[in-house]
Every structure is written in structure tokens, then in C-alpha cells.
Design a binder for these strands. Structure first.
Lengths: 217, 217
DNA sequence: CGGCAGAAGTGTATATTTGCAGAACTGCTA
DNA sequence: TAGCAGTTCTGCAAATATACACTTCTGCCG
């Protein structure tokens, strides 16, 4: 699905470098243990300079966990925005969980190895979740679109109730994301407590139900 | 209120060092701007080694923001735990807000200067809030005690409903804290948007109400 | 093709942060 | 008051990370 062709030399090289870094980082971590791997080693294997390493990965952590944070792809984003009617927060959690699950799509072996590294370094697991927060603004924008869609659907004609005004919608979007991250924090901790079973979905569902109960008056 | 006497030489020295570091960090930041201050400069002014600096402050950020994260003091903790009957989440937010407000109790001048530094470096403001999360486990424990109290009150005799079982209470405590941090994230962002007015309380209140609305079924 | 504009990569210097091993100091006790 | 045990502090070395200036390479257009 990811067109390798009709991609210029420049883009191809970039992709190659990114993959080389991730691969080197994960493989070395499996072999020596995360904390005994140095950036220098990774650079040697990936055949790049340290400076370039940081340009790509941003940090040693980033190299091991994957340079791209696990954000929903175009398909998931579209589905989420169109999901009018159901609960935006609940849908968001499901969407983020799915994005998380799809992470290894292109390179399953690398994905599996990365998973093994994370399993032996629980601190990394929490960081992995936290990385989604790096992209807060992207997610907020996604939710904002969804809410806009919802409001448009609620007032199809020129009805007097145009739903929330734009400012309110933005604030609702931000709050939805803040809550989602809160719930995910909890779910991640539970998931970690249970030894990182393959499907984190049930943890999210349970977490959401608990959140609902605790916020009800 | 903080007994300086009946405190051994060791403890006094420790306090002095901590204060020297905070003072040097804040004052230098005011003079030269946060990012132009180096740890080395701070050490020179505070007259300690770099290694000691990190032993105390943990990071340059920590030195400027204050070595102790803004946690509720004993009085606030007791009040929170005893607050049986009202909403634990709402009370927690109020308690954390109050703790935040009380930060400058002992050294108001330092507090004011610190505030000026933060105002000119918005990134620091968000970090400041985030530091409360460092102490997650402490806050969770606080909430757990409160829930225990609540449950004890709900079943005073040997009634058949002993409230939640202990495990459930712990999970509820964790979730309450996760949600509180989510709400605080939002409140902090709003607060920052408005240019950090002195009292962040209203932002928390508004955030909580919004959260309630968005989690309602 | 020649060559230009901008992107990508690199080298160097410097700053932040951690681990380790040992020195100096404090509180306590004989 | 001598000295022991435990804490605190320090120096050193190495790793992570960033800033800045410089080189090399890619895509593109005449």
C-alpha cells in the first residue's frame, strides 16, 4: 500500500536511513540490552553520523520505539471523523488503540523484535504510550473535525441550533483528548501490570467504563 | 511553622544547599534568561559541584521550578482524606490547586521571581504542572485513603455492603488520579492561553465541568 | 549538460545528565 | 575525644543532546 515506486531518490534514501536506524537500535538492544547500547554503536551499524542520528530519531528512545509515533493512518482518521452519532471519546480511544495495534504493518519482524525489547524494559512501555502525546495537537485537530461533523449532522438545515460555536468545539476537542490520554495512562498501567498481553483493547474498554463511573455524580 | 531549631546541622546544611541552588537558578534566569544559564553558572554561585547540583535538583529545570514538586502539605492531605461525602475527583482537583497556590509559603520573594521566569518561558509553565505527575504514586496513595474512608463511612456497622474491595479501591484511586491529571492538563493549557493569571482555580473548575459533560452518556 | 536552490548530512564545540569510586563530613557512641 | 557507620559531597569519565556553521547531494530548470 505504501508506494515505494514513484518516490524520488531523496525520499527513498530517507526511508532507508530511518529503517536502518530503527533496525540497528532494536537489534543491538536485543543483543546487548537497551541500556548497554550507545548511540555511537547504533550510528556505526547504521553508518551515519551522530548528528544525523539525532536529526532522525530525536533521541535514543525514539530510535528503539520507532521514529514515527503510533498515530492513526488516513483510513482510521477518516473512519473516526465520519463516526457521527456515537461517543467521540469512546471512538477516539478505540481509534488510538487500533493505531497502536497496526504499528507493525509494514515490518512485522522488526515490530516483533521491538516488542521483545520493550517487554524486558517496562519503563519503555510507558514511554511508548507517552509518545502519542507528543502529537497532541494532531489528535486534537482530528477530534475537532469529528465534532464539527457531529454538529453539522445535528442541524442539517438552517436550523437555529448550529451546535457548538467553533471556539467551544475546539475546547471540547482539547478536553476530549486530555481525557483520552488520562484514560490511556490508566489503561497502559493496567496493561503493563498484566505483563503486556498482545491485545490492549480490553484494558482500554475497562478503563473507560471505570472513568465513566468515577465522573458520574 | 517549619522548625528550623531542633534540626541537626546536617539537615540545616541540606536545606541551605537546596535554597542556594533554587535561588541561584532563579536569579540567574531572571538576569540572563533561562536558556542562557548553564548548570555550571548555577554551581558557581551556589558554590557546589556539578555532581551535587544534580543530586539535589535532578535537572536544570528542577532547579528553576523548585526542587520539591508542589504536593499538598499535611494539612491539605488530612482535609482531603476526611472530606467524605463529596466527590473525590472534584475534591482532589481543588486540593491540588490549593497546593499549587501555596507553593510560595516559606519564601515569597523567591516565589515571585520564579513566577516571572516562568511567565517569560511558557514551556516551563507546562513542565511545572507536569511535575506533579512525578509524584503520581504519592497522590494515588492519598486518594486511596480517601476512598477507604468513604467506604467505611458508607457501611458504618457490620453492614453487608463493605463498599469496594481493596483491589477495586486501588484501581479507582489510580483512575481518579489519571483523570485529575487529564483535567489538569487541559486547565493548564487554558490557563497558559490566558497569560497565567494569578488564580488558576477557575480554570480547573471550568475544566472539570467540561469533562463531566463530555463523559456523560 | 550546467548550474542553482534548497534539502540532507556532517564536524565541532558545548551543555546536560548519569555511574562509579573515593574523600569529607556528621551524628553517635564508647 | 577518638573513632565508627552512614550520609553527603566531589572528581572523573562517558553518554546523551543541542547549536551552529559548513559540505554534499538531489531535484529541477534553462
Amino acid at each position: 500500500m505504501t508506494d515505494t515506486h514513484e518516490e524520488g531518490l531523496r525520499a527513498r534514501k530517507r526511508r532507508a536511513t530511518r529503517e536502518a536506524i530503527e533496525r540497528a537500535a532494536v537489534e543491538l538492544s536485543l543483543e546487548h540490552g537497551y541500556e548497554h547500547v550507545t548511540v555511537e554503536m547504533i550510528c556505526e551499524v547504521a553508518d551515519i553520523s551522530q548528528r544525523t542520528f539525532f536529526n532522525y530519531a530525536g533521541s535514543k528512545e525514539g530510535a528503539v520505539l520507532g521514529i514515527e509515533p503510533p498515530l492513526p493512518d488516513q483510513e482510521l482518521r477518516a473512519a473516526y471523523v465520519a463516526g457521527r452519532g456515537s461517543d467521540p471519546l469512546e471512538d477516539l480511544l478505540a481509534t488510538l488503540a487500533e493505531a497502536f495495534a497496526r504499528m507493525g504493518g509494514a515490518a512485522p519482524e522488526l515490530f516483533r523484535k521491538r516488542r521483545r525489547v520493550i517487554e524486558s524494559h517496562p519503563a519503555l512501555a510507558l514511554k511508548e504510550f507517552a509518545r502519542m502525546e507528543e502529537a497532541q495537537s494532531t489528535v486534537v485537530e482530528l477530534v475537532r473535525e469529528r465534532l464539527e461533523e457531529d454538529d453539522a449532522g445535528a442541524a442539517p438545515g438552517g436550523a437555529p441550533s448550529p451546535g457548538r460555536v467553533a471556539g467551544e468545539r475546539s475546547l471540547d476537542a482539547r478536553m476530549t483528548v486530555s481525557l483520552a490520554f488520562g484514560v490511556m495512562h490508566f489503561a497502559a498501567a493496567s496493561w503493563l501490570d498484566e505483563g503486556l498481553p498482545p491485545d490492549p483493547g480490553p484494558f482500554l474498554a475497562a478503563a473507560l467504563e471505570r472513568a465513566r463511573r468515577l465522573t458520574g455524580r
